[in-house]
Computed example of a mutant assay.
Amino acid sequence: MSHPLEPIYALQKKDRRLIKILREIRDIPQRKSDIEAQLSGSKQKLEMALDSRKHTEATLKEQELGAEVLNEKITKYKNQQMEAQTNDQYRAFVKEIGMAEDEIKALEEKEIQLMESLEQGKAIEAECKARLDEDMAGIADELAELDARAAELQEKAKHMKADRARAAKSCDKALLQKYTRILNNKRDFAVVMVEPGGHCGGCHMKLPPQVTNDARNPTKIVACNFCGRIVYNPAP
């Protein structure tokens, strides 16, 4: 008389292989994230270079707008100067024009400095972009390999699930439900062999002699008194 645990034990072997495959599939996204995290330093440096360049451009634009406003003031003052009624009014416009021209000169000097900073910033940005591209190229092969591995595992898991479903049909339904419940709970083994010396193959605790004997009886399904796993003791 065959033991009803034989097909269950065979099914468990398939499940163990399937669980391993599914675990690897589940871990691949994290492995990819870990690899991509290597780019964080290069990405951060590029972002800082971009922000610095944009800030310099914005400041330069402000200086240019400021110079335009001052030039408009100078034009206005010169027109008013031509209409001055007294020497004091004339001298006042000369003073205003001179102050505006001094401000423009200061702005132009600052613009020169900003333009130099902008060119330096663009060079740094290009360098950071090149470094990021180089780093990305370095991990591209690793990411491609992981994608290929994921596709391979998905296909393999598909066939293993179909094979598992066929094997489950030969198992006792009630026993299959019990096995599935224990496997989901223990996450490793639901059915374990009785080890030499009468120990549980799951928790390795010493089993009572009666449990050891009953585990060999095909008419009985017994569990470990300590871990609750089904114990199987096939005849030699």
Score class of each variant (00 low, 15 high):
E152H: 04
R16K: 14
N184D: 10
R16P: 00
E152A: 12
D51H: 03
I221Q: 00
K95E: 15
R164K: 01
L114V: 12
H204T: 10
A162N: 07
R216N: 12
H159Q: 02
A37T: 05
L143W: 01
K169Q: 06
M82P: 01
A67I: 15
A235P: 00
A58N: 01
I19K: 08
L22N: 11
A215F: 09
C224W: 05
A162M: 06
T59V: 02
L175I: 01
A157Y: 08
D15N: 13
C200R: 06
K76Y: 05
I97L: 01
M136Q: 12
E62P: 00
G201L: 12
D34H: 02
H159I: 07
L50V: 13
L39C: 12
K110N: 14
R53K: 02
G198F: 15
K110D: 13
G202K: 01
L143I: 15
L60E: 00
E111Y: 06
L60H: 01
C224Q: 14
R216V: 11
N87I: 10
A162F: 10
Q113K: 03
E72L: 03
T212L: 08
L50W: 01
A123S: 15
I19A: 10
R216E: 15
H55M: 02
Y77I: 00
S40D: 10
A168Y: 02
K156S: 07
I112N: 02
Q113I: 05
Q85I: 15
K158N: 08
E134N: 13
Q12E: 14
L60A: 15
G198I: 15
I8R: 00
C224T: 12
K122T: 15
A10P: 01
K13A: 09
P236V: 15
D102N: 14
A84V: 13
M115P: 03
N79L: 14
A130C: 06
L153Y: 06
E72R: 14
G197R: 04
A168P: 00
Q63D: 02
